[in-house]
Design a protein around this nucleic acid. Structure first.
Lengths: 157, 157
DNA sequence: GGATTGATTGATAATTTCTCTCAACCATGA
DNA sequence: TCATGGTTGAGAGAAATTATCAATCAATCC
């Protein structure tokens, strides 16, 4: 798998949680931090592309991390909100780390490269209106925007 | 599985494609319409809740529709844009029919009841800006809003 | 720093989910 | 109605995911 250099990103790099931050999340919840958990998180968080579980399993095998641990850890990190699920054009499921603060992924449907953007302001008013009209207690939303990145389009840019 | 009566919906009922419409889609693409395809589509489209494949398989078994056909047809309908995927709070995947025109599902995270809303205008400007800033050729987006419906909250309403 | 302890891990088995195969059947068009 | 190419159902097969359990490790308390 190729994890190429980062593309322009609307969100500053600091928006991606640093390793220190995930330690804090774990500590706050009383969940032990292990080498495996950190490495699984880094695998997904440090790349610019969303990775599948199969890719993570392959990439982490030489680190001695087993398949079951990858599954367990992805579930755990997702539950903690440290990973989000996205889907490419073929329907394959990938995971990527959301930055701190509220933002959404712009995903390349071909290579799963992820660029983040902040689109929250637009939706909060919307959600309030929806809640009033439907009686739903809204607890969140999921917004992904899909496109094909410049490199996948073969545009020299 | 209980499919209860419909809740208030922001989109008029006519927004859900009528059976006639899906025939038109199939005909336009030269894809044969079969009893099974219509029934699978109806299963997902006529309920007010997004259903899982397992639920559809169970529900359609007595109609003599096999598991493989359910999978095949859900894939086909999704490719045609006649079904969309949503996810409940437990992470279970469900499918539901999008109405004609552009709208998004508001999904109850507990019972998967789906209410639709039109939130397109807000996003088109956004996408243009994103395209300009990132070099992505944007081809679509996926927006789901999650909440807990009045009934699941036990509110008599 | 070192021992204790409850949680985590890796290997593998077991299960679940999904896809493939193929003979029988059906929708479509002549 | 007939021909025919696509579709279907059943079951086999493959892939993805989860459960089991002994060994190991992270966090805590001396």
């Amino acid at each position: 798998m190729t994890r190429s250099k980062s593309l322009s990103s609307l969100a500053p790099d600091e928006a991606v949680p640093a390793a220190a931050d995930i330690d804090a999340v774990f500590r706050a919840k009383g969940i032990p931090m292990t080498r495996q958990r950190r490495q699984v998180w880094e695998f997904f968080a440090l790349g610019s592309r969303a990775a599948t579980i199969a890719e993570a399993t392959d990439g982490l095998r030489e680190a001695g991390i087993g398949q079951a641990t990858v599954y367990r850890t992805v579930t755990l990190l997702s539950d903690l909100g440290l990973l989000v699920r996205v889907q490419d054009r073929r329907g394959d499921i990938g995971f990527t780390a959301p930055p701190i603060g509220h933002s959404h992924p712009l995903v390349c449907g071909l290579c799963r490269r992820v660029v983040r953007f902040d689109g929250d302001g637009d939706l909060t008013a919307f959600e309030a209106k929806l809640a009033a009209e439907t009686g739903f207690a809204i607890y969140g939303h999921h917004l992904e925007v899909y496109g094909v990145c410049a490199e996948c389009r073969g545009v020299a840019r």
